[in-house]
Amino acid sequence: MTVLRPRGAAQALRMYARRPDAIPLAGGTDFMVAWNAGERDGRAVLDLSAVREWRGIRRTAGVLSIGALATHAELGDDHLVRRHFPVLARAAAAVGSAQIQNRGTLGGNVANASPAADTLPALAVYDARIATAGGGGRRLQLSDFLIGVKKNALLPGELITAVELPLLPRRPDRQLFRKVGPRAAMAISKTVAAGLLWLDRGGAVRELRFALGAMAPTVARLKAAEEFVRGRKLTPALAEEACRLLDQDVAPIDDPRSTAAYRLAVSRNLLREFLAPRF
């Protein structure tokens, strides 16, 4: 088999342009499971792990740029991520286990496009953009990047270089990350939620952002509920109506991990609790 080992970004893009059939490899925590099972036999591999330019976390004008090769452990520990994007820091700390977080990368989690990936709801509420290189390079909204179960919008020769998060104009009044699974570690989520809520002085909703994973082919923002609560005062009735609207934006299924009915019920409970009036 062929293993291409570029030492830098430019070399990686050149090699990939020449061998667009190669499979990119970052931390390998998704790839190696498939490889060990013989599912990638005979394929060429483009190992990105030595490309320094796509590591690291940088703050530029109004944006936090997280290198595609930043690991979950690095995200969970990074003071900029923890300060400005705590929901993402908590999501990263919920991935697999210490061993998985030390190798697995944010770029890999995004590219892999699993409906149940834990960082994706956090990226969705932070309006993340996916920066790519190869074939010109683009910036894609997360919702345009994720096009189906385990399917992304990357073209042949194109790689993720960074995930960009616009800094929030003001601190949310409430924020939530919650993964629901059979145990705390090493569990694929039955459902996974991220939420941000801003209130105005009178206690009415200025803005709600709420995203759910494992509830649809790709991560889903609850657009109907978000629109409905805007400008309204938080009351039990409002939370109830938002929960009723939840199924307009998701379409959960029965699978070996859970049932559609359970996923809906538990997601509604999470949203109801998040929107509950607090005194």
Binding site: R5, M32, V33, D47, A98, N102, R103
Partner: peptide, 19 residues
């Protein structure tokens, strides 16, 4: 299969040696 790589625990069954 956990070993330490540069001081950090990793699953050695998921790491190709070239990395």
């Amino acid at each position: 299969c956990t070993v330490l790589v540069d001081g950090k625990p990793v699953a050695s069954c998921l790491v190709p040696v070239c990395q």
